[in-house]
Amino acid sequence: MTRMTAFNSPFLLGFDHFERALDRITKASTESYPPYNIVQTGANSLRITLAVAGFGPEALEVLVEGNQLQIRGRQSEETERVFVHRGIATRQFQRSFMLAEGMKVSAAALGNGLLHVDLERPEPETRIQRVAITTAS
């Protein structure tokens, strides 16, 4: 059975990237680990904070691919220890955020079990272009 989409009209050619973006957003909204906050830190800046207790900097990865921010965590399994009780999960995660046009990742810092990713949107340059007017002879 084929899936019907909002972009299935013959008048909406070339909008498949929007459909893929909507699919990613829908998938991302069902994820719940790790929990995160997004705080506006300035007029053109944001901070995403993820609770990543137990992950060191070597187990975390922050990537920007196109306009998508991906944060991944991968812990290695410890085989030399014998656990009597294991209540702290060592699971992997991948959290994705769609970035608005022009948003840049300025920094990422890990401290006290929290990963802080700072985002900035630079002020757009005001460009004035003078166009010469020619006369028809």
Rank of each mutant, 00 (worst) to 15 (best):
T26M: 12
K27H: 13
A28F: 04
A28K: 00
A28R: 05
S29C: 12
T30C: 02
E31F: 07
E31G: 02
E31S: 04
S32V: 11
S32N: 07
Y33A: 03
P34R: 00
Y36G: 03
Y36L: 08
N37Y: 02
I38G: 02
V39R: 10
V39W: 04
T41P: 10
T41H: 06
T41M: 05
T41Y: 07
T41V: 13
G42V: 05
G42A: 15
A43D: 15
A43K: 15
N44M: 12
S45N: 13
L46R: 10
L46H: 12
L46Q: 15
R47T: 15
R47C: 13
R47I: 08
I48R: 03
I48Y: 08
I48P: 04
T49W: 01
L50T: 08
L50K: 01
L50W: 10
A51Q: 11
A51R: 09
A51S: 14
V52P: 07
V52F: 09
F55E: 08
F55I: 10
G56C: 12
P57K: 09
E58N: 14
E58H: 13
A59R: 02
A59N: 14
A59E: 15
A59T: 14
L60P: 11
L60Y: 13
L60R: 14
L60A: 07
L60W: 07
L60H: 06
L60T: 09
L63T: 12
V64E: 02
V64C: 02
V64W: 01
G66R: 08
N67P: 00
N67R: 10
Q68G: 01
Q68K: 02
L69C: 02
Q70A: 11
Q70P: 00
Q70C: 04
I71Y: 13
I71R: 11
I71K: 11
R72W: 12
R72K: 15
R72I: 15
G73M: 03
G73R: 01
G73L: 10
G73P: 09
R74D: 13
R74W: 05
R74A: 04
Q75R: 15
S76N: 14
S76P: 11
E77D: 12
E77R: 13
E77I: 11
T79F: 09
E80Q: 12
E80N: 14
E80S: 14
E80T: 10
E80K: 03
R81K: 13
F83M: 08
F83R: 07
V84T: 15
V84Q: 14
R86S: 05
R86T: 09
R86A: 01
R86W: 03
G87M: 01
G87C: 04
I88G: 10
I88D: 12
A89E: 09
A89C: 00
A89Q: 06
A89Y: 01
T90C: 01
T90L: 01
R91F: 01
R91Q: 07
R91M: 04
Q92T: 08
Q92H: 10
F93D: 02
F93T: 02
F93P: 00
Q94W: 11
Q94L: 10
Q94Y: 03
Q94D: 03
R95Q: 11
S96W: 01
S96A: 05
S96H: 02
F97D: 03
M98G: 08
M98I: 07
